[in-house]
Design a protein around this nucleic acid. Sequence first.
DNA 1: TATGAATGAGTGTTCATTCAT
DNA 2: CATGAATGAACACTCATTCAT
Lengths: 223, 223, 223, 223
Amino acid sequence: MLDAAVSVFGRRGYMAASMDEIAELAGVSKPLVYLYLNSKDDLFSACIRREARALTEAVRAGVRPGLPPDGQLWSGLRAFFTHTARNPDAWRVLHLHARTHGERFAAEVASMREEIVAFVTQLIAAAARDAHRDPHLPAGEVAGLAEALVGAAESLADWAGATEGVTAKQAAATLMNFAWAGLGDLMTGRPWSPPEEPEPDQSEPDQSDADQAEPDPVAQVAG
Amino acid sequence: MLDAAVSVFGRRGYMAASMDEIAELAGVSKPLVYLYLNSKDDLFSACIRREARALTEAVRAGVRPGLPPDGQLWSGLRAFFTHTARNPDAWRVLHLHARTHGERFAAEVASMREEIVAFVTQLIAAAARDAHRDPHLPAGEVAGLAEALVGAAESLADWAGATEGVTAKQAAATLMNFAWAGLGDLMTGRPWSPPEEPEPDQSEPDQSDADQAEPDPVAQVAG
Amino acid sequence: MLDAAVSVFGRRGYMAASMDEIAELAGVSKPLVYLYLNSKDDLFSACIRREARALTEAVRAGVRPGLPPDGQLWSGLRAFFTHTARNPDAWRVLHLHARTHGERFAAEVASMREEIVAFVTQLIAAAARDAHRDPHLPAGEVAGLAEALVGAAESLADWAGATEGVTAKQAAATLMNFAWAGLGDLMTGRPWSPPEEPEPDQSEPDQSDADQAEPDPVAQVAG
Amino acid sequence: MLDAAVSVFGRRGYMAASMDEIAELAGVSKPLVYLYLNSKDDLFSACIRREARALTEAVRAGVRPGLPPDGQLWSGLRAFFTHTARNPDAWRVLHLHARTHGERFAAEVASMREEIVAFVTQLIAAAARDAHRDPHLPAGEVAGLAEALVGAAESLADWAGATEGVTAKQAAATLMNFAWAGLGDLMTGRPWSPPEEPEPDQSEPDQSDADQAEPDPVAQVAG
DNA sequence: TATGAATGAGTGTTCATTCAT
DNA sequence: CATGAATGAACACTCATTCAT
């Protein structure tokens, strides 16, 4: 039932979605929807919570804990882009519609986002620690950097979803180059390159499909 | 009258905005709104066009043409963050609501965005040319990088708008560090720093207010 | 619910009728009207179709097939005037409002009218055949005569509805005198007189009420 | 200005006609319409009165006073059909729309109609007097006959307006046959035939156009 | 005088929400 | 439990009508 709601909300937006359409797509009657979820607001809220949790879980599950910060980021981003590519309606709900209608929904999705931002922040802090630069990066600045990284990731998720032939892996590689190496280094031929890792069995079996079709764009950038 | 519409659309979104509220805020009667702008759709469209034009003009006017690519980007970003900070409702209309309701509106804002992405793409290409790396950056990759940069900027605009005490200059500096130097370089103490330039007379006199209040965050990062 | 609609449409006309008034008269809420009949147009159309069918059925049921042409016409006219007298609002809808608003509605009522005109045309042709005058009445002329007869009937229906004390039987007799005998014969004392027939049990029991109150106007004319 | 109003009212009906369209068609501004005619109601009323007067005058002018009753009717009908054929919008206003909207307008057009019905009634009474049948035709019956005749004329006016190639003269001839001879006499080959009269100079020069194009349908009927 | 500019009142239509069954 | 049937409240939109100029 939530699946139907996510689908309709994702395609129509909160206001344009009608409970009739949701109930019909779910194959149940409208009062049943009201029985389980009290109102349109609650239904939307439930969608947001479920999809926010699904997304954070997917990212968390994708991160390889033992790796250095850039490796963790790389693995997390791949999981993120894979998840958003597979659940475009959910992604639209979270990224577009939830922020568009009402403080309550915006707050719910914001708390999810903060969790991800916090994770990225930790990664940046860990990287700084590794480089013995910890004290010199003020917290406010790190917050801004994390925000920029997450925003770039969101934008690339939209872009990858709208552009034919862009895989999750490519999107992640592009973002790693951009975020880790930076345009300055890219110009001088010093791209970021992924850590060597055995490609493990993915828990989601068709994930690798999306990744392996194209040549590694990082290699392209690296020339 | 468009001001009122932008304000209401920005706060409520397209569907939740009522023509009654717009007319009331504009201090006119509803039929007058229909006299000048034919329908809710047309009104929304007019808002989008006006604000899209205003934003692109602000960015274009802010860019210093003679500077090297990073300097141009820096000046453009400062104009961008200044404009979005000053027109939060317009920014919400463009970035949130226009993309949420209908292909027609999405297309209108997409064409504005493409203009900005094209500008950024040119900057990246120019930077590559300066560094004699032109042939080694494939076009598709550059498109992804530009998308990431613009997405990061959009996200930071939201963040700066929601966070007290973050100035346009700070946001721009954070984004330049992130995008140009990259996290990798930042970790090793090599931030990007703004080009030396005489602070010119701003055509919009109070723009500098937003910029000069805080110490230079780049310097902070640079430690 | 259609009854209420016919009543309101009949009294107010299409445009001046409001869905509110119809719903109120029907004792239901406005959305319910929209649930069953999709729009004002559809509602009006449904009224027209129902009343057109009712009228043609009433006429068809009233005609005695075995009689000579004038007897058939006489019986059909009595049914016609009886029906219009009993359903004045329906008659107004068909004869006044449906022809006034929109090609679609006009076409619907025109097809009903054509059915009646065709029936009258057949009667005239049959009468001509009986009198061995078939070849001498051109088809175009017959069409005009049928049109005149139907128009006179419509006008008398309005007149009977507006004039106190005119029964359906009187109206039919007047029209038979006028149409069959003609003013010329009436002047010379040769009115048309109804065929001798046993007055059968009417399927609609109160029909005879309307007929029997007054003395036979045909006899009056016959002097 | 009334011309414009008649045209718009005739084509759209009372309610669907907008003062904007009338003013635009008249080439003046809307407040000017309100200056000369106080309201939409008054404007409609003025249209009705003007066109009612024009129609009755046309009929009155067409009648040849010296002729016997059937000759007078014949000449009046020709004037009637000529006038309605030349002023279809006016005819629609009088016959369709004025009766459709409001007691006030219906009363105005009814008084015109009563004038015509009274004239026809006098003709019938005169014919009865000529035939020495005066006392035997009760007044109520004559009223019904006049009503039928006028209704047939109205219906034929609509029919002639909607059917290509039917002239005013033909319509009048058809109606004379129908009304004066009656279907019964027509069947036995005794149609009505027009009185011999010199075709006088018409005050409206192109009136004869409409009449003379086709062969005399009465002659057709007469075989 | 003639009008550009403005509106109050009312329309058809929709939809989240609720009971009686 | 599950739902068919029903509605209150609201919205976009229109138009006859009026002033200030």
